[in-house]
Computed example of a mutant assay.
Amino acid sequence: MFRSALGKTLGFVGYTIQYGCIAHCAFEYIGEFVACSGPSMEPTITSHGVVFSERLSRHLCRIENGDIVIAKSPFDPHMNVCKRVIGLEGDKVCTSGPSDIFKTHQYVPKGHVWLEGDNLRNSTDSRSYGPVPYALIRGRVCLKLWSLHHVGALNQSPTGRVVKRSD
């Protein structure tokens, strides 16, 4: 009886470890569900909205201008940020303060991206902390899942700031 119980317990532990490894690999290399909080991406993604962030684009270096990404915060490594890519390495970005009075140009250095929220007046982004290292990008947001009346693919930047390259 003891051997039977031990065998079942070890079998259960083995399956748990296997499925745990599969889940870990799926979330680490394929994608994850992310709850976004804060107003910085409104109206595109509302506060407490849930999105699916795929990881393959990041691993294949396929992040482009206009993509919305989940990245580690440059200020707090325990926090993620959800922002739109405005500039890639080598791009010249027109930056401005929250009051839109001062405009300057900055080149995005190699290995970095320029991230901004769609809600420019209420977003802490690259205008505050500068270019973000590409290594901090965790994934590209490809689908909005919540709130229910806004489920679907993501639309263009409401600010019209993103200009696609014509290489």
Results as ranks from 00 to 15, higher is better:
residue 151 V to A: 06
residue 145 L to K: 07
residue 143 L to M: 09
residue 130 G to V: 13
residue 152 G to N: 07
residue 154 L to T: 06
residue 129 Y to H: 11
residue 160 G to P: 11
residue 127 R to G: 02
residue 132 V to F: 05
residue 129 Y to I: 05
residue 134 Y to R: 15
residue 145 L to G: 12
residue 162 V to Q: 03
residue 160 G to S: 02
residue 162 V to W: 09
residue 159 T to Y: 02
residue 160 G to V: 04
residue 131 P to Q: 10
residue 140 R to Y: 06
residue 126 S to M: 08
residue 147 S to H: 14
residue 130 G to W: 10
residue 157 S to K: 05
residue 156 Q to H: 15
residue 128 S to G: 03
residue 158 P to T: 01
residue 163 V to P: 02
residue 159 T to H: 07
residue 150 H to Y: 06
residue 155 N to H: 15
residue 146 W to I: 06
residue 157 S to T: 04
residue 131 P to W: 01
residue 158 P to W: 00
residue 148 L to V: 13
residue 125 D to E: 07
residue 160 G to W: 08
residue 127 R to W: 03
residue 144 K to N: 13
residue 133 P to S: 12
residue 136 L to S: 14
residue 138 R to M: 03
residue 159 T to W: 02
residue 161 R to Y: 12
residue 130 G to E: 10
residue 125 D to L: 04
residue 146 W to E: 00
residue 132 V to P: 10
residue 128 S to V: 10
residue 159 T to G: 15
residue 131 P to S: 13
residue 144 K to I: 06
residue 145 L to E: 01
residue 143 L to P: 02
residue 156 Q to I: 00
residue 159 T to N: 11
residue 133 P to V: 07
residue 141 V to N: 10
residue 127 R to Y: 04
residue 149 H to R: 04
residue 157 S to P: 02
residue 147 S to T: 14
residue 157 S to D: 10
residue 139 G to T: 08
residue 155 N to T: 15
residue 158 P to F: 04
residue 157 S to C: 13
residue 134 Y to Q: 11
residue 136 L to Y: 15
residue 138 R to I: 04
residue 144 K to Y: 03
residue 138 R to K: 15
residue 147 S to Y: 07
residue 161 R to L: 15
residue 150 H to A: 09
residue 147 S to G: 03
residue 144 K to D: 00
residue 129 Y to T: 06
residue 137 I to A: 00
residue 145 L to R: 09
residue 145 L to I: 14
residue 130 G to Y: 11
residue 145 L to S: 07
residue 137 I to L: 05
residue 147 S to E: 12
residue 154 L to M: 08
residue 154 L to C: 03
residue 125 D to K: 08
residue 161 R to T: 13
residue 133 P to R: 13
residue 152 G to K: 10
residue 133 P to I: 01
residue 160 G to C: 13
residue 131 P to V: 09
residue 145 L to W: 03
residue 150 H to V: 00
residue 126 S to N: 09
residue 163 V to T: 11
residue 131 P to K: 12
residue 163 V to Y: 02
residue 157 S to E: 02
residue 137 I to M: 07
residue 139 G to I: 08
residue 157 S to Y: 05
residue 140 R to Q: 14
residue 150 H to T: 13
residue 135 A to V: 12
residue 138 R to W: 04
residue 130 G to R: 11
residue 139 G to Q: 11
residue 125 D to C: 04
residue 153 A to F: 15
residue 136 L to F: 15
residue 156 Q to L: 12
residue 159 T to M: 11
residue 160 G to F: 09
residue 149 H to I: 05
